[in-house]
Every structure is written in C-alpha cells, then in structure tokens.
Simulated scan of single mutants.
Amino acid sequence: MPELPRRRATVRDIAAATGLSIATVSRALNNHAHVAPHTRELVRQAIDRHGTSGSTTIYLRCPYQLTDYFGLIVSAVAETVKRHGHQVLLDAGEAGQAEPVLPRLPGRPGVDGAILILPPEQGEDLEALRDSGFPFVVIDPRTPMPRDIPAVSAAHFAGARSVSEHLVGLGHRRIGVLAGPHNWLAGRARLAGHTSALADVGVLPDPALVRSAEPTVEFGHRAAAELLGLPDPPTALVGFNDKAAVGALAAAAERGLRVPADLSVTGFDDIDLAQATSPRLTTVRQPLLEMGRMAVGLLVRLLEKHELDALHVELATELVVRDSTGPVTT
C-alpha cells in the first residue's frame, strides 16, 4: 500500500511537540531577531519530524460587503493566491468587524499567513500581531502603518491632487469636498492633495466647504445638499469615492442644477458605477486589482523568508476625465 501523504504541520502542532508557546514558534519560523539559536534548532527538528507537506493557506479578511471596491480586491487576491499554488480562507462581511480576530491568528490551525483589507483594528493590535512573528500584509490601511508592517495602497495624495488640479484648470476655485472620515489615512491624504492643488493658484482651503463621514451614496447626497444650499455655493464637488459622487449628482438634480453646465462633480475609485451615471463621472482610477496582486506577492515572499526592500507600496492612480466636469460658469 502506498504511503499516505502526511498532514501539514501547524504552528500549534510544533508548539505542542516542543513545549514552546505558539508565539515563540511563530517568531522562530519567521526568523524573528529575538529567538535563541537553540530554540530555532528545536523548532526545526520538530518540523522535520512532523513533515511540512501540503499547500499554504492564506487567511483573507475583508470585514465589509463584497461589492464594487472590496469585491475587486478580494477577487484579485484569491486568483493570485491560486496561481501561486496556495489556497484562501476567506472571512468577509460587516458582522466580523467587532470580532477579536487578530489575537487568534498566530495559533489558528492550518493558517500560514494573512492579508487584511482595510482592517478596523487599532494600530496597537496590528503591532501585537507583528510582534508575534505571524506573517501578514495590509491592503489599504485605515491608519498609518509602522515601518515594518507591509502595506499596499493607492497614491491617495497624488490622485486627489490630480482631480483637483483638473477642476482648478477649468476655472473652479470654490470647490466643495465630500471627504471621508478624518481618522482615515486615505481621508487625510486626499484632503491634503486637494488643498495642495488649491494652494498652487493661491486659494486657501475653506473649512465651511468640507463635509466628512463614511463615504456612502446617502452621505454624498446629504452633504452635497448642505453645500449647495449655502448662500455662496461651490461650483464643483469632489467626492471621496464614486458612491459619494453619485449622491452628489442626485442632490444636484433635485435642485435643478445641470452637470456639468452648472456644477462639476468628481469621484474616486473608478468602479463600474462611475460609467453608469448620467453624465458619466470624472474620477480617479485606483489600481484595485494590482493592489490585491501586489499584496499576495509580498506575503509569499514573507512566507518564503525573503527580505522585503519595500514594505510600504503606493501604486499610481490615473485621472479619468469623463462628462461630469466642465468650465466654471461666470
């Protein structure tokens, strides 16, 4: 009878076999600096005894609905993981936002590494996971990442600057901003990019023209209605994303404003929705698929014990000019 293939040894298996803690085994497996040589050797011998056959399993966490933005990233990650000969364990859905997932990852049976999409946890929770030696990569971090936590994102500042430069070039100076939450890394970077474009033409940012909240269609509609109701309303609206911009289009239509003749509106992301509106949205294209592929590449290199020269990767965005922007009316 042919010999059956051995089950892949997990971190928990190695910890049980050596009497070491799961965190210590994780640090040894990932070449953490603070592991004694005899401990590394103990772990290596246990791995040799237990065997290491089987494919790598990557835990993919996306605690949001898999529509548009998040769905594209998840699809890219899953497809790329499969091309590398590994498998994905997907954990998705908003219900998971409150679950204490990260502390349990280092000891989770059969899980070798993780990709975390816009993790809602605090920075210290991610730092604790890093200190455990468990390999992971963050896509689109919500807060600034420490230097030694690998992260992939779009160039938020440059993308926002490009779309505001476009509006400034059309003569707009009074521009309303439908911003994301101020405590989001992307929200701060995009607002800074917008401010930079205005500064180039000598315009100071006006806090009265900024509204901030979770960037949904409902928020875009509500915030745009407030801004358009000002005594001196903006001539253009910059949406944090395409959904907020769609809400702004609805608010403009309710006031009888023509886009772009009376009001210019822009988005960010370039999801399918941006081409389904009337008029079609001018927006900033994020490389969502490439973000997913890049994150898998970084994680695979970590799992293979390679050194990473670039831990924080920002991928270039692209301004896509369509029908929702035009010259300011005088």
Rank of each mutant, 00 (worst) to 15 (best):
V81S: 01
G202K: 06
L204A: 15
P63V: 10
E314Y: 15
V152R: 00
T52H: 12
G107S: 08
E121L: 06
F136C: 09
P144V: 03
G110Y: 10
R285H: 13
Q122K: 13
A95H: 14
R8A: 07
V77A: 09
D309C: 14
S75C: 11
V321F: 01
R49S: 12
I73W: 08
R255L: 06
R130P: 07
P287D: 04
G326P: 08
R44M: 06
R211E: 11
A199F: 02
G113D: 11
T39L: 15
L90R: 11
E304S: 15
D262E: 03
L129V: 07
A248I: 02
K82N: 08
H50C: 14
H221F: 13
I149H: 08
V168D: 11
F240W: 12
L178E: 04
Y69F: 15
R147Q: 12
A95N: 09
A179W: 12
M294E: 12
Y59V: 13
F134A: 06
V328Y: 08
A23H: 12
Y59E: 10
H194M: 07
R222F: 13
L105I: 04
G220I: 15
F219W: 04
R27Y: 05
R258N: 10
G171C: 13
T330G: 12
G239E: 05
P181V: 06
D323V: 01
R27C: 06
E124S: 15
L129D: 03
A208D: 14
R83Q: 13
A98Q: 11
S132T: 08
S324M: 03
R211P: 09
P37R: 00
P146H: 08
N30E: 08
F134N: 05
H156M: 07
G220K: 15
R61V: 09
P205A: 07
T329H: 13
D112S: 14
T39W: 12
F219I: 10
V320L: 05
I58P: 07
E124A: 14
M294A: 15
L72W: 07
R61H: 11
A114M: 09
V25C: 01
I47L: 15
A15K: 10
A245W: 13
V300H: 14
L204T: 14
S264P: 00
A158M: 10
G96R: 13
